[in-house]
Amino acid sequence: MPAQSDPRFDAQPETAAALAQMKEVAWTATDPELLELCRVRMALMLASGEDLKEPAPETLSDRELAFLAFTEQFVLSVASVSDSEVDALLAYAEPVDVYSFVAALYSLEMTLRIEMASRVVLAPEEAAA
């Protein structure tokens, strides 16, 4: 079944469908539990409006903390990601798996960013409600 595309993008249906598919594949490209943890952190950082709660920091493993730290820097300023932040991921995953995680993160992050913008610029009645 094709991934469900965002109806706010009905004016560009083919691209919207490809974007929805990219977002869906992201969940199978990497550890989905880790990705969800990082997605929640991203959504909170971007003030997406979702009602989300993060697990208590003391319950997180060193691996989860490393991926969350990378996620924060990726969202805030990718140009400032450091060698050590990537090395911290490489302590837990092979290079190609680190790449797949970052690609999955990009897919979810940028989709979320334009979803937030589209609520206002493509569906102003939705934003005003």
Binding site: A11, Q12, T15, F74, A103, Y106, L122
Partner: peptide, 28 residues
């Protein structure tokens, strides 16, 4: 909406996602 159609705004948003794939490359 003063300068662009709904289709053009949707295309612009998709373009921002497309070009921002560079974030993956820059991070690594």
């Amino acid at each position: 909406h003063e300068h662009f159609s709904q289709e053009q705004i949707a295309e612009m948003l998709h373009d921002i996602v497309k070009w921002s794939f560079q974030k993956v490359l820059v991070a690594l």
